[in-house]
C-alpha cells in the first residue's frame, strides 16, 4: 500500500453551512416531549406514593396493638376479642403452611403444563387450547372458586382425607379426624388458583429460550426429554423461580376462597386435616365487626405482617433470580 498524498485542506464556505443548524427547537415537538416526560414520571412516582401511603395508614392504625403487644404478637397464640388479648401465631402459621402446600402442588403441575405446551410433545392443535384453558383458570373470581371448593372439592376430597387419616395417622401431618374443611383443602384450592400464574410464566420463559439451544442439544443425540431436563429447565430456572414466587405471593394474600374452605379455626395443629386460619381470612372475617381500637389495631398489625411477608417473599425471589442467572453466566 502506498500512502496517498494528503488532500489539500479547504475552508468551510458559507454555502456549506446552509441548513446546518444543531441548536434551537423544531415546532412544538419539544413541548409534547417534555409534557409527556412529566406525565409519565408523575404517574410512576404516584404508584410509589400510594404504596408508601398505604403502609403508613396501616402502620398508623396498627400502632395501638404494636404498643400493647410488641413483637411478642408474632409468637403468641391467643386471639380473644372479649378480653382484648391478641396473638398472631396461628394465622401466620396458617398463611405460611397453606401457601407452602399450594406451591408444593402447583409448581410441578404448572411446570408440566408449561413443558407440554411449549415443546413439541403434543400436536399444535392440542397445545394452544390446553395453555389457553389453564390460563383461563386465573379469570375465575375467587369467590366462585371458594363456592366450588365448598360444594364440590370438599365432598370429593373428604373420603380421601378419611383414607389418609385411617392409613397414615402415624404421620403427624395426617393424625386427626378430618371434618371437611381443612388446611389441606385450602392448600389445594390455592394450588388451583396459582397454577395459571406458574404455568403461563414458565411457558413464556421456556418459549423464550433460543431455538439454537434445542437444535444444539438434538444434534448431540439428546432426546426431547433429555433436552428439556438438561438444557431448557436449567436455562429457565430463574424465570421459573420467579413464576413460583409470584404464585406464592398470590397464595399468601388470597382471601375469599381460603376463608370458605379452611374452617377458620384459631388452633395451631400440625395435622393438615385439621381446620386452620390465615391472615387474609381472619381479616375478611373480623374486620366488619371490629369496633374496639385495639381489635382494629391487632387486625392492622396482622395486615402489616402480611405486607412484610409478601415483601420478604418477593425479595427472596429477586435475590434468587439474580443469584441463579449470575451463576449461569459467570
Amino acid at each position: 500500500m502506498t500512502a496517498s498524498p494528503e488532500p489539500a485542506k479547504k475552508s468551510i464556505s458559507r454555502d456549506m453551512l446552509q441548513g446546518v443548524n444543531l441548536t434551537g427547537q423544531e415546532g412544538n415537538h419539544s413541548l409534547v416531549d417534555q409534557g409527556f416526560t412529566w406525565l409519565v414520571q408523575g404517574v410512576s412516582v404516584s404508584v410509589v406514593v400510594i404504596l408508601g401511603w398505604m403502609s403508613w395508614v396501616i402502620f398508623g392504625q396498627a400502632r395501638p396493638a404494636i404498643e400493647q403487644f410488641g413483637l411478642g404478637f408474632l409468637w403468641t397464640q391467643n386471639w380473644d376479642v372479649n378480653e382484648l388479648v391478641f396473638g398472631a401465631l396461628p394465622y401466620i402459621y396458617g398463611t405460611l403452611v397453606s401457601s407452602a402446600i399450594a406451591l408444593f402442588i402447583a409448581l410441578p403441575i404448572g411446570l408440566a403444563v408449561a413443558i407440554v405446551t411449549s415443546e413439541s410433545f403434543l400436536p399444535p392443535w392440542l397445545r394452544s387450547p390446553i395453555a389457553f384453558i389453564v390460563e383461563l383458570i386465573a379469570a375465575i373470581p375467587s369467590v366462585i372458586v371458594g363456592l366450588w371448593g365448598i360444594f364440590v372439592l370438599i365432598p370429593f376430597l373428604q373420603p380421601i382425607q378419611q383414607w389418609l387419616f385411617q392409613h397414615f395417622s402415624w404421620i403427624p401431618i395426617f393424625n386427626s379426624e378430618p371434618a371437611g374443611p381443612s388446611m389441606l383443602i385450602a392448600g389445594i384450592i390455592l394450588a388451583i388458583m396459582i397454577l395459571p400464574t406458574i404455568a403461563a410464566i414458565s411457558r413464556d420463559v421456556l418459549i423464550a429460550i433460543p431455538k439454537e439451544l434445542r437444535s444444539a442439544s438434538a444434534s448431540l443425540g439428546a432426546t426431547p426429554w433429555e433436552t428439556t431436563f438438561r438444557v431448557l429447565l436449567p436455562s429457565a430456572i430463574s424465570g421459573i423461580l420467579g413464576a413460583a414466587m409470584l404464585g406464592l405471593g398470590r397464595a399468601l394474600g388470597e382471601t375469599m376462597a381460603v376463608t370458605m374452605v379452611i374452617g377458620n379455626s384459631d388452633q395451631i395443629s400440625l395435622s393438615l386435616l385439621d381446620p386452620g386460619n390465615t391472615i387474609p381470612a381472619l381479616l375478611a372475617n373480623q374486620f366488619a365487626e371490629a369496633s374496639d381500637g385495639l381489635h382494629i389495631g391487632a387486625l392492622m398489625y396482622l395486615a402489616l405482617i402480611l405486607f412484610a411477608l409478601t415483601l420478604i417473599v418477593n425479595m427472596i425471589a429477586i435475590v434468587m433470580v439474580k443469584f441463579l442467572s449470575a451463576n449461569g453466566q459467570s
Binding site: P210, E212, L213, S215, A216, S217, S219, L220, V231, P234, S235, G328, Q329
Partner: peptide, 11 residues
C-alpha cells in the same frame, strides 16, 4: 454431528 451458523453454546 452438526455445527450451526451462530455459535450456540449452552449457558
Amino acid at each position: 454431528g452438526m455445527v450451526f451458523q451462530k455459535p450456540n453454546p449452552f449457558p
